[in-house]
Design a protein around this nucleic acid. Structure first.
Lengths: 260, 260
DNA sequence: GCATGGCTTGCACGTTTGTGCACGGTTATC
DNA sequence: GATAACCGTGCACAAACGTGCAAGCCATGC
C-alpha cells in the first residue's frame, strides 16, 4: 500500500500522477489544492497533471479538482425513458439489501437502475444474466460479480436458455430482483417471453426473498405467461400514486409493500 | 577521472542492475540521480541501466528515474486509453472475419474495440466472456451473442474460472481473438494472469484460426505465463512502425502479418 | 609484445520535459 | 453584483534526457 506522504520525500512526476489516479479511484474525487500540499508542488503542476489525466480520459476535470469517470454503460432504448422514476424506485429497493448478501439481478431496465444504485461497502455478491448489470458493477469495490452465460436475447438484454438455466440452478441467493412485465395481487408475476419464464422461476425459487420493483403501470397490465405465485413475492416496491386498492390487495396477500 | 577512486566499491554493470532492481522492489521507485551517487557512476550509465531494465520490462522508465511495474489498471480505464490506435487496429482485424462465422472474443480493451468495429450483415455468432463485448453487440442486427458466464475478474473485465472454462470447451469457433498481454515470434503468446491462461488456451484450441491484435509494445514486453505456441497463431495485426525485424520473425514462423 | 575487437564508461552537445511565476480571464459563493 | 478562489497561457529556467564519440579496460590471438 502507499505510505502516507513523507515530508521531504521527492516523488517523480509520473509517480505523482499514478498516485493521484489511485486517490481518485478510492475517493471518487480529488482537490487540486490538497494535492499541491500533499505532494509539495505548486497547484500549477497539479493542474497540469489533472489536465493530462483528463486528456487520457482517466478523470474529469472540474472546478477545484477532478472527478472519477464512472462510465455508464450505453443505455438501451427503454432505459432512456423514465430514468428518474426508475432511479427513485431503485433507491428504495436497494434499502432492502443487507450486508454480505447474494443477489440475483435479472435483466431489465429497472434492474439496471437497481444495480447502479447498490451501495458500496456491503460486500455483495451479484449474480446476473444481464451484461449491462455486470458491467455496471465491474470494478466497484467490494462487489463480487457472477455472470450467467448463455444465448443473449436482444429483446430482453440478458442470457436465456438452458445453459443459463443450469447455471442459475447451481446457485442459492438471499434476494432476487426479477424483471417485472406484469404483476397481480391475486395471481402473482407474469412475463411476456416464454424463454424468460423458466429463468425467472429458477431465480425466485433459488432465493430466500423476492423483491418486485414495478412502475405503476406494471400492476394493471397483463402478460402471457404465469411465472410465480404471489406467495413467493416477499416485497413490492412501487411509486406513490398507485391505486390504494391495489396496494391493499397486495398487503392482504402477505407482500410487504414499499411506496416511494 | 573526476570521480574519486573507492577501493572495493567497484561493481560490474550486471551486478549494478541487480542491485537497482532490488532497490526498486523495496521502494517502488528509484531516482537516477540517487543511484548515480550511490554507485559512483555517471547518471548516463544509470540511465542506460534503467533503459535496459525497462526493455526487459522489469521496470517502467519515467522522467527522473524508474517505477516498479504496478498491477495493470482496471479494464474500465484501459478501455478509455489509446482509443484511436485501438480503433485503427480493430478496423483491420475485422476484415479477417468472414460471413456466418463463429467468433471467440476474449476480454480486453482492444477486443472491445474489435467488437464495436464488427460489420453489420455478416450474420455472425459472437462468443465472449466479456460483458462489455456482449453489451456492445446486443441489438446489433444479424448478430447472435453468446455470453460465457462465471466469476467476473475486475482486472480482466471478463469471466474466468472453471465455470467459464467448461462453457468454452463446449463450443467450436472459426476465429478467435485472444486478449494479448505479450507475444513473441519464437515462443508465442504470453499472459500475466494465471486464471486467464487456461481460458485463452481453451479458446484458441477450440478455434480454426487465431488472430493476435497487438499494439506495438506488446511484441517487445514479456509476461509471466506461456499461453499458446506460435504455430497456433494464424494472424497478427500490428501497427505501422513496428520493428521490421520482429515482423520478419513472425512471418518466418508462419504467421500472416497485417500492418495497419 | 602488441594488435584487435568487444564492452563499458564519462563527457559534450542539443533537445525535451517539468516547474513556478506573472498575467488576465472565468467561475463559484455570499 | 462584488469578492475570492480558480483557471489557462505564456514565459524563463533548470533538470533530465538521448545520442554520438572517444577513452579506457580486458580478453583473445597473432
Amino acid at each position: 500500500m502507499t505510505l502516507p506522504e513523507v515530508p521531504g520525500e521527492a516523488t517523480l512526476p509520473r509517480e505523482r500522477q499514478d498516485r493521484i489516479l489511485e486517490r481518485l479511484r478510492r475517493h471518487g474525487r480529488v482537490i487540486a489544492a490538497d494535492l499541491a500540499l500533499e505532494f509539495r508542488v505548486s497547484e500549477d503542476s497539479i493542474r497540469r497533471d489533472l489536465r493530462e489525466l483528463a486528456a487520457r480520459s482517466l478523470c474529469k476535470r472540474v472546478y477545484g479538482g477532478a472527478l472519477l469517470i464512472r462510465d455508464i454503460p450505453p443505455i438501451a432504448e427503454r432505459r432512456r425513458e423514465q430514468v428518474e422514476r426508475k432511479r427513485a424506485l431503485a433507491a428504495v429497493a436497494v434499502s432492502l439489501v443487507g450486508r454480505r448478501q447474494i443477489l440475483f439481478i435479472d435483466a431489465g431496465s429497472t434492474n439496471s437502475a437497481i444495480a447502479a444504485a447498490l451501495p458500496d461497502g456491503h460486500e455483495l455478491t451479484v449474480v446476473t444474466n444481464a451484461p449491462d448489470v455486470a458491467l455496471a458493477l465491474i470494478g466497484r469495490p467490494g462487489f463480487e460479480v457472477l455472470c450467467i452465460g448463455g444465448r443473449i436475447e436482444p429483446k430482453i438484454g440478458g442470457a436465456v436458455g438452458s445453459m443459463a438455466l443450469r447455471q442459475i440452478q447451481g446457485i442459492r441467493a438471499d434476494l432476487c430482483f426479477p424483471g417485472v412485465c406484469a404483476a397481480d395481487a391475486q395471481t402473482g408475476l407474469w412475463t411476456f417471453d416464454a424463454e424468460e419464464v423458466v429463468l425467472k422461476r429458477a431465480m425466485i425459487e433459488a432465493s430466500g426473498e423476492t423483491v418486485l420493483v414495478a412502475t405503476g403501470e406494471k400492476l394493471i397490465t397483463a402478460a402471457t405467461h404465469h411465472t410465480a405465485p404471489v406467495e413467493s413475492l416477499t416485497h413490492l416496491v412501487v411509486e406513490r400514486g398507485t391505486d390504494p386498492a391495489v396496494l391493499d390487495a397486495w398487503r392482504a396477500a402477505g407482500t410487504s409493500v414499499h411506496v416511494v
